[in-house]
Design a protein around this nucleic acid. Structure first.
Lengths: 237, 237
DNA sequence: TGGACCATAAAAAGTCATACTTAAAGCGCG
DNA sequence: CGCGCTTTAAGTATGACTTTTTATGGTCCA
């Protein structure tokens, strides 16, 4: 079973965060808006302590700035820590989800081919096995409207590639890729089964990595990401 | 002048953060270590309020986890939000700086060529002008041990490329690139002037972007990053 | 006698209210 | 026009109380 995600955590401060974060990232409090601690405390019926803790976190995400005698100022979008998983989650849940999905897909297009190339040079036998397993899993579930299972294998596959690259910066993008992939199928119900060519390419990446052919792994993965971009162009405005 | 960086901020909680963050990322409190709020409060001579605020931030960076009846547990490295600018700063200042520099350079190698290609398709005239200006600035300062000025142009150049890509995820990596470039020259005093080929390549990227030649912009930028990787291999073990 | 299960106690984080300190924005006076 | 005072809101500290979770210990059954 999938984990509970890390939003909606326990504790008042976490719940306040899950109220403020989405509100800010959704533009409900546009940049330049000034809030006061007491005001927030009253509105959400929590103590100032709780508000301050939540604010410290928002501040570390560069969503707001707290200044004495002024209050909490919502910062312009350009300042936000857009790599923070929580910020990504909030934005994906909000109004500019399409734009966000596009940004992330472009990032994927840059990172995943590079990761695949590196993976070919440093994946462990276990990782190669996992790769093959999930690629075959995708094949097996690519027909018959088993999108749920298909997605799980797809996500796992890309996670393994990123982890196998041996680069921790790449590895940490696993959640991002998962969010993008999940978003794709969840957003609009995909009636049709995945395209067979896409499935085949995953198998090929697994092969290339197993054989240590970085060049080919990168190249095929690049085609996968090109596909993803194209798909996005069809679905989104 | 360069900005004051956002570490060492005002406020006790920020200072506590600047004590705990580097200590944790440096492995001074290894993963699994358990701290208690009161203990920390006493050791750093601050109130529990302050400790809790700092902890909330560390928690949002996934450096620690706070559990009732247990305390603050330092999380394994794999959990850390390695894209958080503050975490990057802390780690670059610490012991595994070389490893960190390498990770970030690999990331650059994946992202910057893609960014250059996009920039060729969407850079404004102003951005093209800036690009040319900084490329020429690099040429002008590439001889005569003017590394300080050279670095400034270099950083500015790469920032403009990333911003011109029109992708906010890429744009936000400007600080990372700046940190890597700065680290390169600061770490070991570079006696020799930059290689002329490297300088020339920057001029070529500026040209390609101006002419809208994404293919070439990407290709030359890729060579620049290959150079950066090679340089790292020479300097680091 | 040994093990499993449940109730209870203790420990530490979480929450709240309050009092007090500090910095800075804005106003008014010289 | 500028200097300083006032006022405001964030920052800090403390103590009392709540909640959750772990660990302990004891009982009951096999």
């Amino acid at each position: 079973m999938a984990e509970q995600a890390d939003s909606s955590g326990q504790g008042l401060h976490a719940r306040l965060l899950d109220a403020l974060g989405p509100a800010i990232t959704a533009g409900e409090y546009p940049p330049g808006t000034v809030l006061r601690t007491d005001e927030v405390a009253e509105r959400y019926e929590v103590s100032r302590t709780v508000v301050r803790e939540a604010v410290r976190v928002l501040e570390s995400m560069h969503l707001v700035e707290s200044r004495r005698r002024v209050g909490l100022t919502v910062l312009p979008t350009a300042e936000w820590n857009v790599y923070d998983p929580q910020v990504i989650t909030w934005r994906l849940a909000g109004a500019d989800r399409p734009r966000q999905l596009r940004s992330l897909t472009v990032l994927r297009s840059a990172v995943e081919p590079a990761a695949a190339r590196l993976a070919a040079g440093s994946a462990t036998p276990q990782q190669c096995a996992d790769l093959t397993e999930h690629a075959l899993g995708m094949v097996a579930t690519s027909r018959g409207h088993r999108l749920g299972e298909y997605l799980e294998h797809d996500v796992a596959f890309h996670r393994v590639v990123l982890n196998s690259s041996g680069n921790e910066m790449f590895a940490r993008l696993g959640d991002v890729v998962a969010a993008v992939l999940a978003g794709r199928t969840r957003h609009d119900v995909m009636f049709s089964d995945p395209r067979q060519e896409a499935v085949t390419m995953h198998v090929q990446v697994a092969e290339a990595v197993r054989e240590g052919d970085g060049e080919r792994a990168e190249s095929v993965m690049r085609n996968i990401t090109v596909d993803a971009m194209a798909e996005l162009d069809v679905l989104a405005p």
